[in-house]
Design a protein around this nucleic acid. Structure first.
Lengths: 262, 262
DNA sequence: CTCGCCCACTCGTCTAGATACCTAAAGGAG
DNA sequence: CTCCTTTAGGTATCTAGACGAGTGGGCGAG
């Protein structure tokens, strides 16, 4: 029964050729942008808006679905529709694989998250040998079978990233790299110990909407894209020694790179 | 009246607790993934699916809207719903600002697109002085007013990118940089001629859903995210001399970076 | 043969409800 | 005090139908 706080939302323009549900979405979006509804705050219920605008419920729902598609709001069954809070963002710097960060015992993810005061977790670890996909095979230089290391990263219980590393079997088999826990400094440290001195990395970045599987694995709200990052590690002899395929919740990340002006 | 090609789509599972419109979306998605419907091909019409599944039209439309949200299909009023073709992708390499690429007369965008056999265009050029936003001011080191250069890039008539460069007035005012066409090599070449030797760039990358304005400017299909790239250029004295804010259609780009393993 | 109109097909928007299920708070039973 | 039930207020899904409007093919008039 909560009446609309007056003045928050305007009226419809029946002469406009903009569809009614879009007009309503526009007004809600603007109210959110202006901070009239704050992060986490509840929007008026469907019934409230039905009454306020004098339209049918489907029309109001249609408006909400527009805003959900933009990732601005999220609905909670039985509770209401809320302005989606922006999660804290993790910044990935381009020097994150610098050798000096490998000296310590813990993985970069854990160290970084601890420093930021969050509670990090690594999850659903799977290590197994498998057939390389066409794409992975190409990137690793025509390899048939690979060692795949899959894991999911969580911050304060929220999944933020899902990654799979692929390594040629002739490098990884029978080494600590094939163990669930490869030891301090991660697999890059192990690779160097095995004589594969790392020279540089190449990263490819794409952004797209998630597949249903990714929505589930990363517990993504609708309207949140994913960043798809494919990193290839090369040793000093120019050989590709690892490919890491990472899917990140786009609302949880900023990637930062430094480029020479050479 | 076109009857459904038989075998393409299955039946509903009434015992499943998965919503009907999701089941329909699942079947269509799978058919697309398996190549049963190819790029650009028309899906069965709403009426066809209403008949095939024995559900109401709103339910079918709901399924389509799921797939549209995933960027898999797009609807054309009066024609049908089609599998969305993947546009050709532009690859941005991390050496794209290397000095050697600046020697030629044309801009990097034009050269690259010509080489790829596409027809490039630059559009809606605007150059003006304006007040710096909080964010831009911070990045440029507490500057009040800036020169802003706005432009939109198109490939074969399709907008793919919208960019704004911001430069401190004390650097840009009264120079060729303030002209609509800054001359061969672009503004980076002019900056160097003016004695601001470029040392390095920093790039920040985010991905998110577009605002309604961005949808219009880039003519984005629904379900296509944008890549938001903010590049800051530093001269050899460590001063930030330019900030470039770029919004790209995510389905048209792959960003590539090379990182040292130092 | 060509032009223009009409019509069938298609998606876009909106209405008006029905049923289901979730959540939180209030109140009663033990 | 704890636990269960009830109830009010939410969203989720679905139905059935109406009207609007873009597209393209067929067909008749000229």
């Amino acid at each position: 029964m909560s009446p609309l706080r007056s003045g928050l939302l305007g009226d419809l323009d029946p002469t406009s050729d903009r569809a009614v549900f879009r007009q309503i979405a526009d007004q809600l979006r603007e109210a959110i942008d202006r901070g009239r509804f704050k992060e986490g705050e509840k929007l008026p219920s469907e019934a409230d808006l039905v009454e306020h605008y004098g339209v049918s419920r489907m029309t109001v729902r249609n408006s909400f679905s527009v805003l959900q598609g933009e990732g601005l709001v999220h609905a909670e069954h039985g509770k209401g529709v809320f302005v989606r809070p922006r999660p804290p963002v993790r910044r990935l710097a381009s020097d994150r694989f610098a050798r000096r960060h490998r000296e310590q015992g813990k993985s970069a993810f854990i160290v970084e998250a601890d420093a930021a005061g969050s509670h990090p977790q690594v999850d659903s670890l799977e290590v197994k040998e498998e057939k390389a996909s066409q794409d992975i095979s190409t990137r690793l230089g025509s390899v048939r079978r690979v060692l795949a290391r899959r894991r999911r990263y969580l911050l304060d219980g929220k999944p933020v990233e899902f990654a799979t590393s692929y390594l040629p079997l002739d490098i990884a088999r029978g080494t600590p790299i094939a163990e669930p826990n490869p030891g301090p400094g991660g697999i890059y440290a192990r690779l160097e110990e095995l004589g594969h001195h790392l020279d540089h990395f190449e990263e490819e970045i794409r952004a797209r909407m998630p597949s249903p599987t990714e929505v589930k694995t990363l517990r993504l709200a609708s309207g949140v894209p994913v960043i798809h990052l494919i990193r290839t590690a090369y040793d000093t002899e120019g050989r590709a020694v690892e490919v890491c395929d990472t899917v990140m919740a786009a609302d949880a990340y900023v990637l930062a790179y430094q480029l020479p002006a050479t």
